[in-house]
Every structure is written in structure tokens, then in C-alpha cells.
Design a protein around this nucleic acid. Structure first.
Lengths: 333, 333
DNA sequence: GTGAAAGCGCTAACAA
DNA sequence: TTGTTAGCGCTTTCAC
């Protein structure tokens, strides 16, 4: 540990050139002669020189990292397969660049404060913000941020310049239409959090479809996207509308909880009650019965967020992106 | 964007003190008079000063971040619920500190190279390394690393100073003993990757138990910890030893795949074949039938890794940690 | 094509 | 308790 760092000066000396020449050679700037470039090359190898990123960052005013901030009070949020997939997408893009990914769970007060500071002091070159709540303090931060911000999902209450979202409304509609098309008439929904864009959009899709079909859209219980919440919501639904024959659940995680409750209540799926989820997480294929759900390209969401941020960083002005969703019919409906 | 940064000098000037005084006040060093401290305080507020972390890092030679590196060729690794939980544990600890978490998926050549560089140039204050393979290039890096390294799971081939692991061998043994105790006699196993510590340890536990019971331990197929691998391995197992009546599967993910194959093969679980998994991921409760499995405290694993790293960073020499595992009996056995 | 010199913003040793 | 003075290691004008 704590070996002394080999500095650029040492390389320069060894190569018998000036420090600036060495610097140019290393960052392969154009104005360096062949011989010097090669001399520097050799010196670098010989000395095992590796540039100090911090110093470089200080000099260039570029940090070399971007942060992914996830809002929400529960640190376990990240364990949600949805976010995990998003992270995979993001890091697959970032791996091709020299940027690194800083994970910022802005759950505690402290976490929020830290994030705020980072955003204001350009301690990151860019920020990706996910799953903002309505009136989320992070939104304010984003506005005064010193660095580009890309949103994952459209936040409620304002339209950011850069975001990538899935077509949640359309997906919710497709899911519900499917229930209608398969003959269900007493259709309920377990919504996601209605203070998040994805939650409201999916719910709107639900309303859209039932309005067109002329069906009653009042069977609704609000959930929270998580499994236990889904179970609880299903219980409530069953208690209030025991005659329901179809339910659109705004996330697969909740749908898994709902399936459990339905089973415990002795309702057969899909015979008594058809269930359609949302997200198409990998677990959806293995529920019993396998879950009909709305597929959204989660990894792609992450990838596109990262790409968009890169584009902004490169001085471009990419336009917002809406990724398509599509219904995947399995046995639960 | 790109507001000019307020510097310490400006604060000092505004407060009417020297820069060093300002610096001391801000880092609340002892030797500053009350009045100056407060003057600086006010100036900071008035100017909206926020220290520049990069400059500080350069001066103090402390970066303020730690990296979690996950080895493996598949970027989707992170979507594994196991890793996701570990990350949750880590970040819950880090959130209490001023360190941030850099996620480094060392999957591509490039990723590895970058990580190597970071490790060698002290671009992070510490490193957590997970799921190293035998002869993993990362291990070499870890040795020449300039910064403290904490391992998640014991790597094969050497004993690092700092690691936290789960008691995999004991867990594998408990799982297998349970199969024995419930009367199974033709017991097979789907191992994890045998070039990873966790994989071999669980397999050893399997062997231990069967040796004690005097049963045949030759029914083994190697898996890879992932669901599809588990399905495939189960197929192979069934083909080679159609008479098996119990199987210890070294990860829940693989067990989920195995359950599917058993169902498709018309074997009833647990009547024809008892299945025991490992990890106790949340999905294990919802398989059909619910999965008997070996619980390990995954979030705690992450937490302890982070704590251990903090301890090392604080100059302590924490001893390695082995977290307990325990059998959770559900309906699949 | 090359080198000298002036920073980037902060900390820390030293002298006062 | 205070201020002065060097750095930390790199980039980048600006003359040559």
C-alpha cells in the first residue's frame, strides 16, 4: 500500500522531454513529434506511470463520473429487480466510456443532502434521476444543478428537457383492453404509487380502456409497486368488490403478491380472476400461473438514459425518448 | 449550468480572515477563534460556498469514494437478486459516511483495465471485491493494490486479510442433512460454479453430509448459479439418475429453474423429489411449492463488508467474518 | 513542435 | 490563534 505515485514529471525526465510534451504525448495531442511520443511511451511503461485522475479532474474541471440517484425512503429500493435491471443497462453503456457510475441512494436526509451538494458543486459530470415523487426535493435540486440531468421516467409536475420513459399509459391501456377483450367485465386495478409518473400513467391507461369499453372503472386500490403492498391491495380489492373477475396490477412485484392472496382466497387464476401485471420482470414467467404482463425494455431504459446523458455531455441536445411497451400474454389471463 | 464556483478565497475575503483560517473553520479544526469561525460561517452562507471535493481530494490524497467491483463476464450479474441485496447493505452503511459508492462491473476487458488502473492509482480509498473466480485477474490486482481491499466471499487459492463470507459449507451440509433426515437416499446436487469459493464450499457441505450418512455422493452436475443453468442441470441430472429422490441446489435461482424442469418432467415436489435451495432470496417463498432453502444474511453481508472496509480505512485491523447460515424449511422438501 | 509558467481549489507545515 | 507559503499532479495558454 501507499506506493509513491509516479508523476508526469518523472516520466518527462526519464524520456528527456518537457512535462508539457509528456502530457501531450500521453493525451495524444497532435503537436508532438514521433520520437518524443515514443520516448514518452517507453518511459511510461518503464516507470509504470498511471495518470492521477484527481489531479486531472482538478485541472480540467471534469470529474469523470456520473451519478445515478434513486429517490425514496427505502434503501432496499435498489433490490427491486426493476432498478437492478436499469443499473445493468446504464453500466453496460458506461463501461464503454471513461466515466464511472456513482450510486446514490438518496433515501436518508443525509443522502439527500449529500446529493444536493454533489449536484451543486459539479462533483459529477452528470446525473441520472429515477423515480421522482411528486414534489420530490430532488426535483428542485435538479433545477439548480450545475450539471446535466437526465430523468428516468417523466416526473410529475414538470417536463424536463431530458428524459427517457416507457410508454406506461399505452401499456396500462393494452393490459386493460386485454382483460376486456377476454370477456372480463368487472375489472379492478391495483395502481402503483400515484405520486409517481409511472403510477399515474398506468392508471390513466386503465381508465382509458374502460372508458372506451364503457365499463365501470371505480374498482381501484392504490398500491406501492412492492410485493407486500400488492398482496395487501388485493385483499382490500377482494373485500370491497368480491365479484371482480379481472385485475390489472401496475407492477409484476405487486402481481406476485396479488396472486398469492388470490390463491389463499381460493380464487382460481385465470378462471375466476384474470390477472395482468406490468414490467415483465424475469420472475413473471415463473409465477403460477405464469403472469400475463406488459413488457417494457428495462435494460434499454437504463442504456438510453446513459446514452442520453453522454449526448448531453457531448454538447448535443437529444430529444426525450419514450420506449414502447407491449403486452405479453401468458396463462394468468 | 456552469455557474462559477465560489472559492475558499472568496469566503476568506468576505469573512475578513486568511484562507487558512477559513479552511480551518470549515473543517472545524480546533484552533480557530469563535468570532472568526462565525464570520466564516456567515460568509459561507452568504456566498453559497461549497468546497470543491476534487481539490480537496488532491490536497489530502483521499478520494472520498470506495468501489464495489463485481467480477464476471455477464453485465447482467448485477440484476441477480443476491448482488442487488449486497449493494443495498453496502450503501446503507455508506450513507452514514461521507464516502460514496462507485459501481464497477469489471466484465469487459475494458472494465477490468479501468478497475486495475483505479486500484493502482488510488483513485478510490478502498475496494470491495465480490465473487472472484479462481485465477481471477482481479485477484492479482488486489494484491498490488494501493488501497485496502475487502473481499465478499473467500476467494479460491488464497486467504485475504479482510473478507466477509457466509458459512457456505455449513449451509450446504445442513441442506443435505435435511434431505437425509427426511428419508431421501438417492440425493443429487446441482453445484454452483466450482471456480468460486461459494460454489465449492456448498459442494463440500454436500459431500460432508453424505459421507456421514454413508450415502452415495456421485450424483452431481455443475451449474452456474443462474436460473437457466439450473434448469439445464436438472435436465441432465434427471437423464443420468432418473431414480433420484432429493436434490440440493446451490442457489435459489437455479432451484427455480430446477423446479420448472421437474414439473415439466412430471415429477412432483416434494413427493417424488425433494428440493433444497440456497440463499433464501425473496422469490423462494413464492415458488410452487415454496422452496426449502438455506438462508444467508445477504444484506448483512454487504453491510459487514462496508463496515470492515471503513474499519480498515480507520487504521484498524478487523478480523475476517463468517456469517451464519440456517436452513429454512418450506414445502419443497 | 516545444518549453516555461501559471493556474485548478484546497490543505498543511511552518513561522509568527 | 493566526497568516504565509508551499505544495497535491495535471493541463493549458502563451511565447518561442
Amino acid at each position: 500500500m501507499a506506493k509513491r505515485q509516479v508523476t508526469l514529471d518523472e516520466v518527462a525526465e526519464r524520456a528527456g522531454v518537457s512535462r508539457s510534451a509528456a502530457s501531450r504525448a500521453i493525451n495524444n495531442a497532435p503537436n508532438v513529434s514521433r520520437v518524443k511520443r515514443e520516448a514518452v511511451q517507453r518511459a511510461v511503461e518503464a516507470l509504470g506511470y498511471v495518470p492521477n485522475a484527481t489531479a486531472r479532474a482538478l485541472a480540467t474541471q471534469q470529474v469523470g463520473s456520473v451519478v445515478l440517484a434513486i429517490s425514496g425512503e427505502d434503501p432496499a429500493l435498489l433490490a427491486d429487480p426493476f432498478f437492478a435491471e436499469v443499473v445493468v443497462g446504464i453500466s453496460s453503456v458506461l463501461e464503454e466510456t471513461d466515466l464511472e457510475l456513482v450510486l446514490s441512494l438518496a433515501t436518508s436526509e443525509r443522502g439527500q443532502a449529500r446529493l444536493a451538494q454533489r449536484l451543486r458543486t459539479r462533483q459529477a459530470d452528470g446525473v441520472m434521476l429515477m423515480s421522482l415523487r411528486e414534489n420530490d426535493p430532488l426535483a428542485a435540486l435538479a433545477h439548480q444543478a450545475d450539471v446535466p440531468v437526465v430523468f428516468g421516467g417523466r416526473p410529475l409536475g414538470f417536463e424536463p428537457s431530458y428524459y427517457v420513459d416507457a410508454d406506461n399509459r399505452c401499456g396500462g391501456r393494452a393490459a386493460t383492453e386485454h382483460l376486456v377483450a377476454t370477456g372480463r367485465t368487472r375489472i379492478a386495478t391495483i395502481t402503483g404509487r400515484l405520486d409517481e409518473g409511472a403510477g399515474t400513467a398506468r392508471y390513466q391507461g386503465f381508465q382509458d380502456a374502460l372508458a372506451v369499453a364503457g365499463l365501470d372503472a371505480s374498482r381501484i386500490v392504490q398500491g406501492d409497486f412492492a410485493e407486500d403492498g400488492g398482496a395487501q391491495a388485493m385483499g382490500e380489492l377482494l373485500a370491497r368488490w368480491p365479484d371482480l373477475d379481472g385485475v390489472f396490477v401496475a407492477s409484476d412485484q405487486m402481481a406476485i403478491g396479488a396472486l398469492r392472496v388470490l390463491r389463499e382466497a381460493g380464487r382460481s387464476v385465470p378462471d375466476d380472476v384474470a390477472v395482468v401485471g406490468f414490467n415483465d420482470i424475469s420472475a413473471a414467467r415463473h409465477t403460477v400461473p405464469p403472469l400475463t404482463t406488459v413488457h417494457q425494455p428495462i435494460q434499454a431504459l437504463g442504456r438510453e438514459m446513459a446514452r442520453m446523458l453522454l449526448a448531453v455531455l457531448a454538447g448535443e441536445q437529444p430529444s426525450p425518448l419514450i420506449l414502447p411497451t407491449r403486452l405479453v400474454v401468458r396463462a394468468s389471463s
